[in-house]
Design a protein around this nucleic acid. Structure first.
Lengths: 230, 230
DNA sequence: TCAGTAAAAGTCAATCTGACTCTAACTGGT
DNA sequence: ACCAGTTAGAGTCAGATTGACTTTTACTGA
Protein backbone atom coordinates (compact mmCIF):
# COMPACT_ATOMS: atom_id res chain seq x y z
CA UNK A 1 0.00 0.00 0.00
CA UNK A 2 2.63 2.51 -1.05
CA UNK A 3 1.18 5.97 -1.41
CA UNK A 4 0.80 6.92 -5.09
CA UNK A 5 0.46 10.62 -4.29
CA UNK A 6 4.14 10.91 -4.99
CA UNK A 7 5.53 9.91 -8.36
CA UNK A 8 7.12 6.48 -8.63
CA UNK A 9 10.86 6.38 -9.28
CA UNK A 10 12.32 4.09 -11.92
CA UNK A 11 15.74 3.57 -13.48
CA UNK A 12 16.31 2.60 -17.12
CA UNK A 13 19.38 2.20 -19.29
CA UNK A 14 20.17 2.66 -22.96
CA UNK A 15 22.92 0.16 -23.79
CA UNK A 16 25.03 0.49 -26.90
CA UNK A 17 27.41 -1.90 -28.50
CA UNK A 18 29.08 -2.06 -31.88
CA UNK A 19 28.49 -4.84 -34.37
CA UNK A 20 28.44 -5.23 -38.15
CA UNK A 21 25.22 -4.30 -39.85
CA UNK A 22 24.32 -7.27 -42.10
CA UNK A 23 22.96 -4.82 -44.67
CA UNK A 24 25.94 -2.53 -45.12
CA UNK A 25 28.58 -4.75 -43.51
CA UNK A 26 29.88 -1.68 -41.72
CA UNK A 27 29.99 -1.48 -37.93
CA UNK A 28 26.97 0.23 -36.50
CA UNK A 29 25.38 0.81 -33.12
CA UNK A 30 23.06 -1.81 -31.66
CA UNK A 31 21.10 -1.91 -28.45
CA UNK A 32 19.23 -4.57 -26.51
CA UNK A 33 15.54 -4.22 -25.72
CA UNK A 34 13.32 -6.26 -23.46
CA UNK A 35 9.71 -7.19 -23.98
CA UNK A 36 7.25 -5.81 -21.42
CA UNK A 37 5.83 -8.61 -19.31
CA UNK A 38 3.06 -6.56 -17.74
CA UNK A 39 0.81 -3.61 -18.33
CA UNK A 40 1.09 -0.93 -19.42
CA UNK A 41 2.40 -1.65 -22.92
CA UNK A 42 2.40 -5.41 -22.30
CA UNK A 43 4.32 -7.19 -25.04
CA UNK A 44 5.99 -4.08 -26.45
CA UNK A 45 9.74 -3.57 -26.63
CA UNK A 46 11.23 -1.28 -23.99
CA UNK A 47 14.50 -0.24 -22.40
CA UNK A 48 15.76 -2.50 -19.62
CA UNK A 49 15.11 -1.08 -16.18
CA UNK A 50 12.97 -1.30 -13.10
CA UNK A 51 11.79 0.45 -9.97
CA UNK A 52 14.35 2.08 -7.72
CA UNK A 53 14.76 0.14 -4.46
CA UNK A 54 14.62 2.26 -1.33
CA UNK A 55 18.32 2.24 -0.52
CA UNK A 56 20.17 1.52 -3.73
CA UNK A 57 22.38 4.06 -5.45
CA UNK A 58 21.01 5.21 -8.82
CA UNK A 59 23.95 4.02 -10.93
CA UNK A 60 24.01 0.74 -9.02
CA UNK A 61 20.34 0.19 -9.75
CA UNK A 62 20.98 0.85 -13.43
CA UNK A 63 23.85 -1.64 -13.49
CA UNK A 64 21.87 -4.24 -11.60
CA UNK A 65 18.69 -4.11 -13.67
CA UNK A 66 20.64 -4.32 -16.86
CA UNK A 67 22.61 -7.27 -15.57
CA UNK A 68 19.46 -9.04 -14.47
CA UNK A 69 17.58 -8.56 -17.70
CA UNK A 70 20.36 -8.85 -20.26
CA UNK A 71 23.31 -10.41 -18.42
CA UNK A 72 25.52 -7.51 -19.48
CA UNK A 73 28.19 -5.66 -17.50
CA UNK A 74 28.97 -2.26 -18.98
CA UNK A 75 32.45 -0.78 -19.29
CA UNK A 76 30.98 2.68 -19.27
CA UNK A 77 27.94 3.93 -17.44
CA UNK A 78 26.80 7.52 -17.21
CA UNK A 79 23.62 9.28 -16.27
CA UNK A 80 21.77 10.54 -19.32
CA UNK A 81 18.70 12.47 -18.26
CA UNK A 82 15.72 12.28 -15.96
CA UNK A 83 12.33 12.06 -17.63
CA UNK A 84 9.42 13.14 -15.50
CA UNK A 85 6.66 14.36 -17.74
CA UNK A 86 3.35 13.68 -16.01
CA UNK A 87 1.52 11.47 -18.45
CA UNK A 88 4.53 9.79 -20.02
CA UNK A 89 3.23 6.58 -18.50
CA UNK A 90 -0.41 5.50 -18.51
CA UNK A 91 -1.48 4.98 -14.93
CA UNK A 92 0.44 6.61 -12.10
CA UNK A 93 3.19 9.12 -12.75
CA UNK A 94 6.67 7.65 -13.19
CA UNK A 95 9.87 9.63 -13.02
CA UNK A 96 12.65 7.71 -14.78
CA UNK A 97 16.31 8.34 -14.20
CA UNK A 98 17.88 7.09 -17.41
CA UNK A 99 21.49 5.97 -17.79
CA UNK A 100 23.42 5.14 -20.90
CA UNK A 101 25.98 2.39 -21.10
CA UNK A 102 28.57 1.00 -23.48
CA UNK A 103 29.59 -2.64 -23.63
CA UNK A 104 32.38 -4.38 -25.48
CA UNK A 105 31.48 -6.16 -28.69
CA UNK A 106 32.81 -9.42 -27.26
CA UNK A 107 30.84 -9.04 -24.06
CA UNK A 108 27.69 -8.21 -26.00
CA UNK A 109 27.94 -11.49 -27.92
CA UNK A 110 27.67 -13.39 -24.65
CA UNK A 111 24.50 -11.59 -23.63
CA UNK A 112 21.17 -13.23 -23.12
CA UNK A 113 19.06 -13.40 -26.25
CA UNK A 114 15.65 -15.03 -26.15
CA UNK A 115 11.99 -14.43 -26.78
CA UNK A 116 12.06 -11.41 -24.48
CA UNK A 117 15.49 -9.92 -25.05
CA UNK A 118 16.75 -8.93 -28.48
CA UNK A 119 19.24 -6.63 -30.14
CA UNK A 120 18.21 -3.99 -32.66
CA UNK A 121 20.21 -1.60 -34.85
CA UNK A 122 19.94 1.79 -33.20
CA UNK A 123 18.64 3.52 -36.30
CA UNK A 124 15.95 0.96 -37.13
CA UNK A 125 13.96 0.47 -33.94
CA UNK A 126 10.39 -0.75 -33.64
CA UNK A 127 7.88 1.47 -31.82
CA UNK A 128 8.84 1.26 -28.17
CA UNK A 129 6.83 1.46 -24.97
CA UNK A 130 6.34 4.81 -23.20
CA UNK A 131 8.58 7.61 -24.50
CA UNK A 132 11.48 5.23 -25.03
CA UNK A 133 11.98 6.04 -28.70
CA UNK A 134 12.65 9.62 -27.80
CA UNK A 135 14.98 8.54 -25.02
CA UNK A 136 17.06 6.43 -27.39
CA UNK A 137 17.24 9.31 -29.83
CA UNK A 138 18.56 11.57 -27.13
CA UNK A 139 21.09 8.95 -26.02
CA UNK A 140 22.30 8.67 -29.61
CA UNK A 141 22.66 12.41 -29.81
CA UNK A 142 24.69 12.48 -26.61
CA UNK A 143 26.91 9.68 -27.81
CA UNK A 144 27.59 11.42 -31.10
CA UNK A 145 28.14 14.90 -29.74
CA UNK A 146 30.45 13.88 -26.91
CA UNK A 147 33.60 15.91 -27.27
CA UNK A 148 35.64 13.25 -25.66
CA UNK A 149 35.55 10.15 -27.81
CA UNK A 150 38.68 8.48 -26.55
CA UNK A 151 37.11 6.94 -23.49
CA UNK A 152 33.92 6.11 -25.36
CA UNK A 153 35.76 4.38 -28.16
CA UNK A 154 37.80 2.48 -25.64
CA UNK A 155 34.65 1.21 -23.93
CA UNK A 156 33.63 -0.58 -27.10
CA UNK A 157 36.98 -2.30 -27.49
CA UNK A 158 38.96 -4.86 -25.51
CA UNK A 159 42.16 -4.21 -23.59
CA UNK A 160 44.27 -3.96 -26.70
CA UNK A 161 43.25 -2.91 -30.18
CA UNK A 162 44.61 -1.80 -33.51
CA UNK A 163 44.26 1.69 -34.84
CA UNK A 164 42.02 0.31 -37.58
CA UNK A 165 39.65 -1.04 -34.95
CA UNK A 166 39.71 2.25 -33.11
CA UNK A 167 39.02 4.08 -36.33
CA UNK A 168 36.15 1.74 -37.05
CA UNK A 169 34.55 2.74 -33.75
CA UNK A 170 34.93 6.41 -34.51
CA UNK A 171 33.50 5.93 -37.98
CA UNK A 172 30.49 4.07 -36.65
CA UNK A 173 29.75 6.70 -34.04
CA UNK A 174 30.37 9.67 -36.30
CA UNK A 175 28.73 7.98 -39.28
CA UNK A 176 31.40 9.00 -41.75
CA UNK A 177 34.62 7.65 -43.17
CA UNK A 178 37.91 8.91 -41.74
CA UNK A 179 41.25 9.13 -43.51
CA UNK A 180 43.45 6.40 -42.00
CA UNK A 181 46.64 8.43 -42.15
CA UNK A 182 45.13 11.56 -40.65
CA UNK A 183 43.35 9.53 -38.01
CA UNK A 184 46.64 7.94 -37.01
CA UNK A 185 48.32 11.29 -36.74
CA UNK A 186 45.57 12.76 -34.58
CA UNK A 187 45.39 9.82 -32.21
CA UNK A 188 49.14 9.51 -31.85
CA UNK A 189 49.58 13.15 -31.00
CA UNK A 190 46.67 13.08 -28.54
CA UNK A 191 48.46 10.62 -26.30
CA UNK A 192 45.27 8.74 -25.47
CA UNK A 193 46.71 5.42 -26.58
CA UNK A 194 50.00 3.68 -25.93
CA UNK A 195 51.87 1.31 -28.21
CA UNK A 196 52.10 -2.10 -26.53
CA UNK A 197 54.99 -3.17 -28.76
CA UNK A 198 52.97 -6.20 -29.83
CA UNK A 199 51.63 -6.82 -33.30
CA UNK A 200 48.76 -8.83 -34.69
CA UNK A 201 50.09 -11.97 -36.38
CA UNK A 202 48.59 -14.06 -39.15
CA UNK A 203 46.79 -11.34 -41.04
CA UNK A 204 47.17 -11.43 -44.82
CA UNK A 205 48.83 -8.02 -44.91
CA UNK A 206 51.22 -5.85 -43.03
CA UNK A 207 50.62 -6.68 -39.36
CA UNK A 208 49.21 -3.78 -37.35
CA UNK A 209 50.47 -2.75 -33.92
CA UNK A 210 48.42 -3.27 -30.83
CA UNK A 211 47.66 -0.30 -28.66
CA UNK A 212 46.40 0.11 -25.15
CA UNK A 213 44.33 2.91 -23.68
CA UNK A 214 46.31 5.44 -21.69
CA UNK A 215 44.57 5.76 -18.32
CA UNK A 216 46.54 8.76 -17.23
CA UNK A 217 44.72 11.18 -19.51
CA UNK A 218 41.36 12.83 -19.79
CA UNK A 219 38.23 12.62 -17.75
CA UNK A 220 34.92 12.40 -19.52
CA UNK A 221 31.81 13.78 -17.96
CA UNK A 222 30.90 10.98 -15.65
CA UNK A 223 28.84 13.29 -13.56
CA UNK A 224 29.96 14.96 -10.37
CA UNK A 225 31.41 11.75 -9.02
CA UNK A 226 34.38 11.17 -11.24
CA UNK A 227 35.13 7.79 -12.79
CA UNK A 228 32.40 5.30 -11.97
CA UNK A 229 32.67 2.18 -14.07
CA UNK A 230 35.32 1.56 -16.64
CA UNK B 1 0.49 9.37 5.42
CA UNK B 2 2.62 9.18 2.29
CA UNK B 3 4.62 5.99 2.28
CA UNK B 4 8.31 6.62 2.88
CA UNK B 5 9.31 3.26 1.50
CA UNK B 6 9.92 5.04 -1.76
CA UNK B 7 12.42 7.86 -1.96
CA UNK B 8 11.05 11.41 -1.86
CA UNK B 9 11.44 13.47 -5.03
CA UNK B 10 12.69 17.03 -4.91
CA UNK B 11 13.72 19.66 -7.46
CA UNK B 12 16.49 22.22 -6.91
CA UNK B 13 18.12 24.83 -9.08
CA UNK B 14 21.56 26.37 -9.34
CA UNK B 15 21.06 29.92 -10.58
CA UNK B 16 23.90 31.93 -12.03
CA UNK B 17 24.16 35.56 -12.87
CA UNK B 18 27.04 37.85 -13.69
CA UNK B 19 28.03 40.82 -11.56
CA UNK B 20 31.21 42.67 -10.67
CA UNK B 21 33.27 41.21 -7.88
CA UNK B 22 33.97 44.08 -5.44
CA UNK B 23 37.40 42.59 -4.80
CA UNK B 24 38.74 42.33 -8.35
CA UNK B 25 36.19 44.61 -10.04
CA UNK B 26 35.94 42.03 -12.80
CA UNK B 27 32.66 40.35 -13.66
CA UNK B 28 32.26 37.01 -11.96
CA UNK B 29 29.56 34.44 -11.40
CA UNK B 30 27.18 34.83 -8.50
CA UNK B 31 24.36 32.69 -7.26
CA UNK B 32 21.47 33.11 -4.82
CA UNK B 33 21.10 30.82 -1.82
CA UNK B 34 18.23 30.46 0.61
CA UNK B 35 18.40 29.77 4.29
CA UNK B 36 16.83 26.50 5.42
CA UNK B 37 13.74 27.16 7.51
CA UNK B 38 13.39 23.63 8.85
CA UNK B 39 15.36 20.53 9.71
CA UNK B 40 17.53 19.00 8.52
CA UNK B 41 20.25 21.64 8.28
CA UNK B 42 18.00 24.32 9.76
CA UNK B 43 19.55 27.76 9.29
CA UNK B 44 22.16 26.67 6.75
CA UNK B 45 22.40 28.06 3.23
CA UNK B 46 21.06 25.82 0.47
CA UNK B 47 19.97 25.82 -3.17
CA UNK B 48 16.42 27.00 -3.80
CA UNK B 49 14.04 24.14 -4.45
CA UNK B 50 11.27 22.05 -3.02
CA UNK B 51 9.33 18.84 -3.25
CA UNK B 52 7.97 17.77 -6.60
CA UNK B 53 4.17 18.12 -6.74
CA UNK B 54 2.35 15.07 -8.05
CA UNK B 55 1.50 16.43 -11.47
CA UNK B 56 3.94 19.19 -12.24
CA UNK B 57 6.54 18.92 -14.98
CA UNK B 58 10.12 18.81 -13.66
CA UNK B 59 11.33 21.96 -15.39
CA UNK B 60 8.13 23.76 -14.41
CA UNK B 61 8.67 22.83 -10.78
CA UNK B 62 12.24 24.16 -10.98
CA UNK B 63 11.05 27.43 -12.48
CA UNK B 64 8.24 27.78 -9.95
CA UNK B 65 10.29 27.10 -6.81
CA UNK B 66 12.96 29.50 -7.90
CA UNK B 67 10.40 32.17 -8.63
CA UNK B 68 8.73 31.67 -5.27
CA UNK B 69 11.91 31.78 -3.22
CA UNK B 70 13.96 34.35 -5.11
CA UNK B 71 11.51 36.14 -7.39
CA UNK B 72 13.66 35.33 -10.41
CA UNK B 73 12.64 34.27 -13.91
CA UNK B 74 15.48 32.57 -15.78
CA UNK B 75 16.30 33.13 -19.44
CA UNK B 76 17.89 29.71 -19.61
CA UNK B 77 16.93 26.57 -17.74
CA UNK B 78 18.39 23.15 -18.29
CA UNK B 79 18.47 19.91 -16.37
CA UNK B 80 21.84 19.36 -14.72
CA UNK B 81 21.89 16.01 -12.99
CA UNK B 82 19.88 13.84 -10.65
CA UNK B 83 21.40 13.17 -7.27
CA UNK B 84 20.11 10.12 -5.49
CA UNK B 85 22.77 8.83 -3.16
CA UNK B 86 21.05 7.15 -0.21
CA UNK B 87 22.29 9.06 2.76
CA UNK B 88 22.81 12.41 1.05
CA UNK B 89 20.04 13.69 3.29
CA UNK B 90 19.70 12.90 7.00
CA UNK B 91 16.31 11.32 7.53
CA UNK B 92 14.44 9.74 4.64
CA UNK B 93 16.07 9.30 1.26
CA UNK B 94 15.66 12.19 -1.15
CA UNK B 95 16.28 12.03 -4.87
CA UNK B 96 16.88 15.54 -6.21
CA UNK B 97 16.49 16.46 -9.85
CA UNK B 98 18.73 19.51 -10.15
CA UNK B 99 18.42 22.19 -12.82
CA UNK B 100 20.75 25.02 -13.62
CA UNK B 101 19.56 28.43 -14.71
CA UNK B 102 20.97 31.69 -16.00
CA UNK B 103 19.42 35.08 -15.36
CA UNK B 104 20.17 38.51 -16.77
CA UNK B 105 22.24 40.83 -14.66
CA UNK B 106 19.45 43.39 -14.72
CA UNK B 107 16.84 40.86 -13.71
CA UNK B 108 19.06 39.59 -10.90
CA UNK B 109 19.28 43.07 -9.41
CA UNK B 110 15.52 43.08 -8.93
CA UNK B 111 15.53 39.80 -7.06
CA UNK B 112 14.47 39.38 -3.47
CA UNK B 113 17.25 39.84 -0.96
CA UNK B 114 16.54 39.53 2.72
CA UNK B 115 17.49 37.66 5.84
CA UNK B 116 16.84 34.35 4.10
CA UNK B 117 17.91 34.98 0.50
CA UNK B 118 21.36 36.22 -0.42
CA UNK B 119 23.80 36.25 -3.33
CA UNK B 120 27.26 34.75 -3.07
CA UNK B 121 30.21 34.71 -5.47
CA UNK B 122 30.30 31.21 -6.94
CA UNK B 123 33.90 30.58 -5.98
CA UNK B 124 33.56 31.71 -2.36
CA UNK B 125 30.59 29.86 -0.96
CA UNK B 126 29.89 29.07 2.68
CA UNK B 127 29.39 25.42 3.66
CA UNK B 128 26.01 24.48 2.25
CA UNK B 129 23.33 22.06 3.39
CA UNK B 130 23.30 18.47 2.10
CA UNK B 131 25.66 17.84 -0.83
CA UNK B 132 24.92 21.25 -2.31
CA UNK B 133 28.54 22.38 -2.44
CA UNK B 134 29.34 19.49 -4.72
CA UNK B 135 26.28 20.22 -6.83
CA UNK B 136 27.35 23.82 -7.38
CA UNK B 137 30.83 22.68 -8.31
CA UNK B 138 29.40 20.37 -10.91
CA UNK B 139 27.12 23.11 -12.26
CA UNK B 140 30.14 25.40 -12.59
CA UNK B 141 32.00 22.69 -14.44
CA UNK B 142 29.11 22.21 -16.84
CA UNK B 143 28.81 25.93 -17.44
CA UNK B 144 32.52 26.27 -18.19
CA UNK B 145 32.85 23.20 -20.39
CA UNK B 146 29.80 23.88 -22.52
CA UNK B 147 30.90 23.84 -26.11
CA UNK B 148 28.19 26.21 -27.09
CA UNK B 149 28.71 29.50 -25.27
CA UNK B 150 26.73 31.69 -27.61
CA UNK B 151 23.35 30.91 -26.11
CA UNK B 152 24.75 30.90 -22.60
CA UNK B 153 26.42 34.25 -23.01
CA UNK B 154 23.24 35.64 -24.47
CA UNK B 155 21.25 34.47 -21.45
CA UNK B 156 23.30 36.74 -19.21
CA UNK B 157 22.74 39.78 -21.37
CA UNK B 158 19.76 41.86 -22.44
CA UNK B 159 18.23 42.01 -25.89
CA UNK B 160 21.04 44.09 -27.31
CA UNK B 161 24.64 44.25 -26.22
CA UNK B 162 28.07 45.41 -27.28
CA UNK B 163 30.87 43.05 -28.22
CA UNK B 164 32.74 44.27 -25.16
CA UNK B 165 29.85 43.14 -22.94
CA UNK B 166 29.74 39.82 -24.72
CA UNK B 167 33.46 39.42 -24.31
CA UNK B 168 33.13 40.25 -20.64
CA UNK B 169 30.68 37.36 -20.23
CA UNK B 170 33.03 34.95 -21.98
CA UNK B 171 35.95 36.12 -19.89
CA UNK B 172 34.01 35.66 -16.66
CA UNK B 173 32.90 32.17 -17.58
CA UNK B 174 36.25 31.07 -18.97
CA UNK B 175 38.19 32.89 -16.27
CA UNK B 176 40.74 34.34 -18.63
CA UNK B 177 41.29 37.46 -20.67
CA UNK B 178 40.48 37.35 -24.38
CA UNK B 179 42.04 39.41 -27.12
CA UNK B 180 39.38 41.96 -28.19
CA UNK B 181 40.35 41.88 -31.85
CA UNK B 182 40.46 38.09 -32.11
CA UNK B 183 37.23 37.80 -30.16
CA UNK B 184 35.52 40.14 -32.57
CA UNK B 185 36.77 38.16 -35.54
CA UNK B 186 35.59 34.85 -34.11
CA UNK B 187 32.15 36.11 -33.14
CA UNK B 188 31.57 37.93 -36.39
CA UNK B 189 32.44 34.91 -38.47
CA UNK B 190 30.32 32.60 -36.33
CA UNK B 191 27.16 34.42 -37.27
CA UNK B 192 25.67 34.10 -33.79
CA UNK B 193 25.11 37.82 -33.48
CA UNK B 194 23.64 40.42 -35.78
CA UNK B 195 24.50 44.10 -35.99
CA UNK B 196 21.47 46.18 -35.04
CA UNK B 197 22.84 49.29 -36.74
CA UNK B 198 22.50 51.16 -33.47
CA UNK B 199 25.34 52.47 -31.37
CA UNK B 200 25.75 53.30 -27.72
CA UNK B 201 25.78 57.07 -27.23
CA UNK B 202 27.30 59.19 -24.51
CA UNK B 203 30.27 57.02 -23.67
CA UNK B 204 33.55 58.84 -23.18
CA UNK B 205 35.17 57.00 -26.08
CA UNK B 206 34.43 55.65 -29.47
CA UNK B 207 30.81 54.46 -29.37
CA UNK B 208 30.42 50.69 -29.79
CA UNK B 209 27.82 49.03 -31.98
CA UNK B 210 24.88 47.19 -30.51
CA UNK B 211 24.33 43.60 -31.51
CA UNK B 212 21.44 41.25 -31.20
CA UNK B 213 21.49 37.47 -30.81
CA UNK B 214 20.80 35.57 -34.02
CA UNK B 215 18.00 33.13 -33.23
CA UNK B 216 18.33 31.22 -36.46
CA UNK B 217 21.51 29.44 -35.45
CA UNK B 218 22.61 26.74 -33.06
CA UNK B 219 20.79 24.62 -30.53
CA UNK B 220 22.38 23.99 -27.19
CA UNK B 221 21.74 20.81 -25.31
CA UNK B 222 18.46 21.65 -23.70
CA UNK B 223 17.70 18.02 -23.23
CA UNK B 224 15.58 15.89 -25.47
CA UNK B 225 12.86 18.49 -25.67
CA UNK B 226 14.46 21.25 -27.65
CA UNK B 227 14.27 24.89 -26.59
CA UNK B 228 12.46 25.25 -23.28
CA UNK B 229 12.94 28.68 -21.79
CA UNK B 230 14.82 31.50 -23.46
C1' DT C 1 58.58 -14.77 -56.53
C1' DC C 2 55.08 -11.82 -57.51
C1' DA C 3 50.42 -9.74 -56.93
C1' DG C 4 47.43 -7.79 -53.59
C1' DT C 5 46.50 -5.30 -49.54
C1' DA C 6 46.72 -2.86 -45.45
C1' DA C 7 49.98 -0.42 -42.19
C1' DA C 8 52.54 3.44 -41.46
C1' DA C 9 55.17 7.55 -42.80
C1' DG C 10 55.50 11.66 -45.37
C1' DT C 11 54.04 15.92 -48.31
C1' DC C 12 51.49 20.07 -49.25
C1' DA C 13 48.14 23.58 -49.32
C1' DA C 14 44.21 25.70 -47.04
C1' DT C 15 42.47 27.10 -42.86
C1' DC C 16 42.50 28.54 -38.04
C1' DT C 17 44.55 30.86 -33.95
C1' DG C 18 47.08 33.86 -31.02
C1' DA C 19 49.88 37.92 -30.69
C1' DC C 20 50.39 42.08 -32.30
C1' DT C 21 49.97 46.79 -34.72
C1' DC C 22 47.47 50.55 -36.60
C1' DT C 23 43.68 53.69 -37.46
C1' DA C 24 38.98 55.66 -36.28
C1' DA C 25 35.85 57.93 -33.23
C1' DC C 26 34.41 59.68 -29.35
C1' DT C 27 34.47 62.84 -24.60
C1' DG C 28 36.26 65.67 -21.10
C1' DG C 29 39.57 68.85 -19.52
C1' DT C 30 42.31 72.72 -20.29
C1' DA D 1 39.29 74.99 -30.00
C1' DC D 2 42.14 71.43 -29.44
C1' DC D 3 44.72 67.97 -27.27
C1' DA D 4 45.04 63.85 -24.18
C1' DG D 5 43.10 59.63 -23.11
C1' DT D 6 40.60 55.67 -24.22
C1' DT D 7 37.99 52.26 -26.54
C1' DA D 8 36.12 50.43 -31.12
C1' DG D 9 37.30 48.08 -34.84
C1' DA D 10 40.32 46.77 -38.97
C1' DG D 11 44.45 44.67 -40.53
C1' DT D 12 48.95 41.80 -40.52
C1' DC D 13 51.81 37.83 -39.77
C1' DA D 14 53.71 33.52 -38.10
C1' DG D 15 52.89 29.05 -36.13
C1' DA D 16 49.69 25.21 -35.45
C1' DT D 17 46.05 22.32 -37.20
C1' DT D 18 43.48 19.79 -40.78
C1' DG D 19 42.08 17.45 -44.99
C1' DA D 20 43.53 15.37 -49.29
C1' DC D 21 46.86 12.89 -51.21
C1' DT D 22 51.32 10.08 -52.24
C1' DT D 23 54.91 6.91 -51.03
C1' DT D 24 57.08 3.26 -48.69
C1' DT D 25 56.99 -0.84 -45.76
C1' DA D 26 55.56 -5.47 -44.41
C1' DC D 27 53.08 -9.10 -44.60
C1' DT D 28 50.16 -13.55 -46.97
C1' DG D 29 48.49 -16.50 -50.47
C1' DA D 30 48.64 -18.10 -55.16
Amino acid sequence: MTGQLQAALAVSTVIFTLRPDPASDLSTLWLPLVRRTREPHLGQWALPGGDLPADEELAAAAARTLRETTGLTPKYLEQLYTFGDPGRSPGGRVVSVVYWALVETGEAALAVVDENVQWFPADRLPPLAFDHNRIVEYALWRLRTKVEYSRIAHAFLGETFTLAQLRDVHEAVLQKALDPANFRRTIESSGTVVDTGQRVAGVPHRPPRLYRYNDSVNATDLGPFGPAIG
